[in-house]
């Protein structure tokens, strides 16, 4: 099922074309990675799916819902994990999760929260420590736990492995693979060519607001990072 769909999407930011007619879609159970240099339009694409940026032409659909006409319904089925997720420093991991879940009117039990925090491998000793004393990676883990607990059909991840150490990146990839296997549609934007090739079924390459290439994995072989890397460098 097509969960995310961009159709001839044009977005203007500060009177300049940030996205210039891109087309792609993400199916349920699929991880789609958008790669591109700074200013290529990766985050703009995510924000347009969330309804923060309105298309000047074309449209974006979330689970068949046109975002422009029903932002609230579209947001309800998505979880957004921003780059270097800044949760509230004056609250601990538990309090942050509870607050953001209450915001989304998502009812979870204490054991659900504990399970999610265990799943992102956040040390139990740190659960009740205020986030101001967390490392960047630990904060990121809490944010990932939040996206697990939201349990929406679609995950939008903006540079999700930024700040994580290599072991944590591997754990994260395993985690989102598992989520995708359970039917979630995942759109992630990243600079990390090798990480994207390791985890994504498809990779879209963005340059100056245009999709300049798309790579797909096959059942017997993942996407070759060398090919993507070369294309990335060519189009940088």
């Amino acid at each position: 099922m097509m969960m995310l769909q961009a159709d001839s999407l044009h977005i203007k930011r500060a009177n300049r074309a940030a996205l210039n007619g891109i087309n792609f879609h993400v199916n349920s159970g699929e991880i789609y990675a958008l790669l591109g240099g700074n200013g290529a339009g990766k985050s703009t694409t995510l924000l347009s799916f969330l309804g923060f940026l309105k298309p000047s032409q074309g449209q974006v659909r979330v689970k068949g819902i046109e975002v422009k006409s029903n932002i609230a319904a579209a947001r309800k089925v998505m979880t957004y994990l921003p780059e270097s997720a800044s949760l509230y420093d004056h609250m601990n991991a538990y309090e942050n999760l509870k607050y953001f879940l209450q915001l989304a009117k998502r009812h979870v039990t204490e054991s659900d929260i504990q399970h999610a925090l265990n799943r992102v491998s956040l040390n139990q000793d740190s659960w009740k420590i205020k986030l101001r004393d967390y490392s960047k990676g630990m904060r990121q883990k809490v944010a990932i736990a939040l996206s697990i607990l939201r349990d929406t059909d679609i995950l939008l991840l903006d540079e999700p492995t930024s700040g994580l150490d290599p072991a944590a990146i591997d754990e994260f990839h395993a985690l989102i693979r598992d989520l995708a296997n359970n039917g979630k549609a995942i759109l992630m934007v990243t600079h990390d060519v090798y990480g994207a090739c390791q985890v994504a079924e498809r990779i879209g390459l963005l340059r100056d607001g245009q999709l300049v290439g798309e790579f797909s994995s096959h059942s017997d072989a993942p996407i070759d990072p060398q090919i993507v890397h070369s294309a990335f460098l060519r189009n940088k």
């Binding site: 924000l47 969330l50 309800k76 998505m78 979880t79 957004y80 780059e83 800044s86 509230y88 915001l103």
Partner: peptide, 14 residues
């Protein structure tokens, strides 16, 4: 703080 989009996209009623 970089929380705005997370907050607004999470909240059920703005």
């Amino acid at each position: 703080a970089g929380r705005y989009h997370l907050l607004v996209s999470s909240v059920s009623h703005i």
